[in-house]
Simulated assay, not measured.
Amino acid sequence: MSVAVLPGVVTEWPPVDPTETDAIAEHRDEVLAAVRDHAGRIAYELARLEGGDYGQRTVETDRGEWTVKYEGGDLEYLRFDPGRGAETYVVSTKRPPDPAALADALADYGAFVEGFNDYVRSLSGVLDDVSTDFPAVESTDGVVAERDRVLDRVREVCDRIAGQLRRYEGGDYGTFTTRVGGTRWELKWDRDGVSYLRVGGSSGVYLVSQYDHPSAADIREYAPRFCDFVRAYNDHVDDLEADLATVDL
C-alpha cells in the first residue's frame, strides 16, 4: 500500500518488513543451553573441591576474568569481565545476554576452561605428603568418672537440703541463697528435689542443673567450697530455731 505522506514523497508502508529474530534467539538459546550444561559441570567440580554448599572462583585469562558462582553444587552464574567495557553474564538467573556480547565472551570461553583445569591440576598431589598417622586419642573415661562421682555427691547433699527446705517452707518450689567468701550461692528446689545450684549470680556457674555438666575446671574450683555452702545452710537452720535437720557431709 502506497501512502502520500508529504507532497512529492510517496512512502510504501511499512517500507521494509522487520527482520525475523526467531532464528537468532533460537540459536542463542541453544548455545546458552550448551554453555550452562558445560559450566554446570565446572560448578559441580568446584563445589566438590571447595567442600561447601556455595562459593565462587575467578579465573584470569589474557582477555579478562571469568567468575563462576555456585550454590548447592549447581551453577548460579557465569560472568565474563573483559576489563574494559561492560561485564557479560553468560549464564545467570536473569535475562539472557545480548547475542553480540555473548559471542564476544564465548570467544574466550575455551581459555577460561583451560585456566580452570590448570587450577585443578595445580592441586594434584598437594596432600601426598600429609600424614594420617595421628597420635592416639586419650580417653576421658577417668575424668568423667571422677566428675560424676563428685557431682553425684553434691547433688545428693543438695537433694537433702531441698527436702528439708520444702518440709519447712512448704509449697512446690523455692530458693535458698547465701554468700560464701563473698560469692553468691543459690539453690533452687522443687517437688522432685534440687533444681539447680548456681554459683556467682545469674551469669554464674551451674554446679548442679538439669542440663549440662560444669567443666572440670569449675568443679575443681567450686567443689571444695561446697562444704562452706552446706555450713552456711546449717547456720541458716540454726538461726531459724525450727525443726529442720542439719546436713552433714
Rank of each mutant, 00 (worst) to 15 (best):
A43Q: 01
R63Q: 07
V3Q: 06
D141E: 10
R57T: 03
R28T: 05
L165T: 06
V208A: 02
L165A: 05
R153V: 08
L197V: 08
E241R: 15
V144H: 15
S131M: 03
S195R: 14
V3E: 07
R191P: 02
D104T: 10
G174P: 02
G204F: 14
R166T: 05
A105W: 15
E71H: 10
H27D: 06
V91W: 01
R95D: 12
R57K: 15
A4P: 02
R198E: 09
P214V: 10
D129M: 11
D104F: 11
H27G: 06
R160F: 05
P99F: 12
V120P: 07
V68T: 09
L32H: 03
S2C: 08
G193M: 00
R147V: 09
A100H: 02
P7Q: 12
A103W: 08
R149Q: 14
D62P: 03
V247S: 00
Y89F: 14
G115Y: 13
D133Y: 12
Y119R: 14
Y222E: 03
Y109F: 15
V180M: 11
E26T: 06
L127F: 14
P14Q: 06
G8S: 05
V144Y: 15
L249Y: 13
V205A: 09
V144Q: 13
D128E: 09
R198A: 05
N117F: 14
D228C: 09
V91I: 15
S124K: 15
A216T: 11
K69Q: 09
N234K: 07
V3P: 02
T58R: 15
A111E: 07
E50T: 07
D81Q: 10
A33H: 08
Y173C: 02
D218T: 09
G52Q: 00
E221I: 04
D190L: 03
R95F: 13
L249G: 02
A39L: 01
D152R: 15
V31Q: 14
Y233L: 03
L78N: 02
V205N: 06
L240M: 14
E45C: 09
R198V: 10
E87L: 10
R57I: 04
V59R: 01
V199W: 00
N234M: 08
D133Q: 12
A4T: 04
Y206C: 03
I42K: 00
G55I: 00
I42D: 00
W185M: 05
P97S: 08
D133F: 06
Y222A: 02
H27P: 01
Y173R: 12
L49H: 12
M1A: 04
A216G: 08
T175W: 12
Y168N: 08
L46K: 00
I42T: 02
K94W: 08
Y168L: 09
P99G: 04
A25T: 09
V230P: 14
V205S: 09
E45N: 10
W66M: 00
Q56F: 09
V59S: 01
S131L: 03
V126D: 07
P214T: 07
L123Y: 07
L106R: 11
W185F: 13
